[in-house]
Write a protein that binds this DNA or RNA. Sequence first.
DNA 1: CCTTTTGTGGATCGTGCGATACAGAATTTG
DNA 2: CAAATTCTGTATCGCACGATCCACAAAAGG
Lengths: 191, 191
Amino acid sequence: MARLREFDTELAVARAMELFWLRGYEATSVRDLTEALGVGQGSLYAAFGSKDGLYRAALTRYRETLAADALASLEESGDARTVIRAMLLERVAIATDGARGCLLVNAIAERLPGDTATARAVRETLDASRDALAEVLRAAGRRGEIRTGRDPVTLAAFLVTFLNGLLVVSKVTPEVRELEPLVEIALSTLD
Amino acid sequence: MARLREFDTELAVARAMELFWLRGYEATSVRDLTEALGVGQGSLYAAFGSKDGLYRAALTRYRETLAADALASLEESGDARTVIRAMLLERVAIATDGARGCLLVNAIAERLPGDTATARAVRETLDASRDALAEVLRAAGRRGEIRTGRDPVTLAAFLVTFLNGLLVVSKVTPEVRELEPLVEIALSTLD
DNA sequence: CCTTTTGTGGATCGTGCGATACAGAATTTG
DNA sequence: CAAATTCTGTATCGCACGATCCACAAAAGG
């Protein structure tokens, strides 16, 4: 019935995500985006409505890829401690690459208060991470790998909170050697 | 020899700090600042050179007031666990007030990579916090309040990292009731 | 093949940005 | 009191911003 879209929407969102991730929302201009995406301003606005719309799409994509990766990472074989350690350090490695940190943490810092849509999206992602982690902890408790005295959900929330701290700190202290001992202390709460 | 400055520089920096803290660097315009500070643009540029200069002054002020408060908080009488718990929860209370978070965390997220001056300033502040905390832990170890098996500096770095996570999470989960159990888990690493 | 519909990139819109210029007011020195 | 110096607010600078417009291109239906 009409002309087809020429650019790959998914790819465009992926590139926009990279840019927002590295520079933040305000410091990334629509012109920066059109250049990086190889898409004219008209097409961009037709597809996403506004800079904000594209940002939300980028956030959603981040959530989905991150959730998929983290879940896959947590479903690796091995004892809970090993799996969680690997997940934490992998997230740090991603954050220190280019010193971009974590898009969600950056979004919280830059866009809150004010952007309630982002607040909701971020909160949901953190809750989902916590719940996935809690499930791993529950299973590990059943297998007797960790102590069972604590509520798995609270423990998982603690670990997610610590991870966010790690993602912040790794932006000014990217040396993994300095961060690994902190991870070990956090993991000692599983004893 | 010439006309005296009419506005209180310290007070102006304090107000600028509030604004940057609440809205972030990019989202705060120079005109916003002149209005909030009650100072004309000419005077502002004469005093601070640039928007960036004023931001750095605000960061410095934040470091100084924060360091002073935190140190005072840590020098309260009481056992280490109580003192550290109070310090963590006080920082959370400050961050959730107005959902502004922590200026340092916001600075890390919004201005890095790129602003090396801010990176250095933030890193120094985190190191200072860690060292002050390590001193408290050392003293507590000597008094037999906490277990002495761990390096106090590493333990302090863990607590600072966890605190930063708490400051991030509290921006989307401001309910202290939900955060207190996480603090207790973090404090259990002192056992 | 012609009409209709949608996508295209570039030109353009009005606005607000950070920064500067400047005329006048205030203060000190001689 | 006059000269010199600095601070004051405001007007203005050039520019980049997000958003929109639009002439043309491409695909589908009759």
